[in-house]
Simulated assay, not measured.
Amino acid sequence: MNDSDACPCGTGDSYARCCRPLHTGERLAATAEELMRSRYSAYAVGDLDYVWRTWHPRTRPDALTPDTGSEWLGLEIVGVAAGGCDDDTGEVEFVAHYRRDRRTGTLHERSRFAVRARRWFYVDGDVD
């Protein structure tokens, strides 16, 4: 992905201005939604290290396996509950669109996030 390309997370900003600074550690996500969007982008660009680093240590797996058969096509944020700059927890409901084996599909999840050591982490989620 080129830095000038539109960010996969759907904000309309370039990847360089949106999620790349989070992926490279130049800055931290300020809200649960921003972390959700950056994690989606990390899946889209194949940065599983970022996905693993932003997963709460209490719930993250020992390792992540790349899914080379999926292409992430777009992200819709359905709703946000808390998860702001002054919150300790938050939820983000989203629908992620993908293509696998020439078929399209969606992943609908309500994700839970928590702040630990002044950083947002993905805790877990309920998939519909």
Rank of each mutant, 00 (worst) to 15 (best):
M1H: 13
D5A: 10
A6C: 00
A6H: 07
G10L: 00
T11R: 06
D13E: 15
R17Y: 09
L22C: 11
H23L: 10
T24V: 15
A32W: 05
E34A: 14
M36V: 04
S41K: 02
V45G: 06
D47H: 09
L48K: 13
V51C: 09
R53P: 07
R53W: 06
R53D: 05
R58C: 01
T59N: 00
T59M: 09
R60Q: 02
P61M: 06
W72N: 03
L73P: 04
G74C: 05
L75P: 01
E76P: 00
E76G: 02
V78S: 01
G79R: 10
A82V: 13
G83W: 11
D86F: 11
D87C: 11
T89D: 07
G90Q: 06
G90S: 04
E91R: 15
E91L: 14
E93G: 14
E93P: 07
V95Q: 02
V95H: 04
A96K: 05
H97V: 15
Y98T: 04
R102H: 15
G105Y: 02
G105K: 05
L107Y: 07
L107T: 07
S111H: 03
F113G: 03
A114P: 07
A114M: 09
V115L: 02
V115N: 04
R118K: 14
W120E: 00
Y122L: 03
Y122W: 11
V127E: 13
